[in-house]
Design a protein around this nucleic acid. Structure first.
Lengths: 158, 158
DNA sequence: GCGAGATAGTCTCACTTGCAACTATCTAAG
DNA sequence: CTTAGATAGTTGCAAGTGAGACTATCTCGC
């Protein structure tokens, strides 16, 4: 008789762990900076790059639905954390970038998040962390989750 | 200047991977058997055990909100996949168990899910799978995610 | 027993999100 | 050019979910 123990079932464990870790982290930026997860993803994507990105690009990078990104962008624009300019080359899309204020918030936010990440990974030895990251990478690859997307310029060409 | 690359940020990666794997799996049981994730969790919890469980117990095991479990239980009752009987010892709670029909569906469902799990883990060597499971376990422990809850009888005592 | 507080389960409300339709714009074929 | 199809972004709608109120029941201290 086939049995399946949820607690040994990797898909369930990954889902639970991902949800739990996300919840723990999102408290960090929601309570303190009023950012929800989609908003944080937009900030993080823009913060890493110096060049301006389109909403579509952010959606692809973060694997988040474009309507969700659209709403996050609207909210961040209202708070003047990001700015957008029409792209003269293609007037359907907008180029998004952090404002000075947005950059300042980003800079303030990051250290706390990296610290929380290290806390969460604190139960693993340095060797184990490396190994865990490597195995995550293999799973991501095999599931076709883009890990390090090319810069926009390249994507536009392809 | 602090930077954070989302694609190397473990909380984001875990969230994305968990969501992706869950989505892939839930297609397996939603499309074919009409079960959504909470319903599947109820089935899985009841299917593993021979003794009947309370809704509260399932909620704790699966770390799912009690109102979500309540709705899943209602839906499964309507489809006669589970049955419930009042608990004479404590008339606030109900004892839930799979019906014969529910058991049959469970038995039919499990092999496909285990196969999908193996497909997902297929990119890892047996050694790596063991290691991955071990590291997951350490993370779960450190985050206080119960992995193998005690049987109800024990829980009631505590 | 009796009342205060805890607990199981249900239900309503508010919020989030994905889907799909829609507008505006671009690209390519004829 | 013109037209058909693709694409960027927005918005209305419906489904799912958590918080918390609520009811019924239990437990414990007095």
């Amino acid at each position: 008789m086939a049995k399946l123990d949820l607690f040994k079932f990797v898909p369930f464990r990954l889902n639970r762990l991902g949800a739990e870790v996300s919840a723990a982290l999102s408290n960090e930026y929601r309570a303190r900076y009023g950012l929800d997860i989609p908003e944080w993803r937009v900030m993080a994507t823009l913060g890493l790059r110096d060049e301006a990105c389109s909403a579509q690009y952010i959606a692809q990078c973060t694997r988040t639905h474009k309507s969700t990104i659209s709403r996050a962008v609207t909210a961040l624009l209202e708070r003047a954390l990001i700015a957008r300019v029409e792209n003269a080359d293609d007037r359907r899309e907008f180029r998004l970038a952090l404002t000075d204020q947005g950059r300042a918030l980003y800079e303030e936010l990051i250290p706390g998040l990296l610290r929380r990440e290290q806390e969460i990974l604190g139960c693993l030895t340095p060797q184990e962390r490396k190994e865990f990251a490597r195995l995550l990478g293999k799973l991501e690859d095999s599931l076709d989750l883009v890990r390090a997307p090319r810069p926009m310029s390249e994507i536009e060409v392809c």
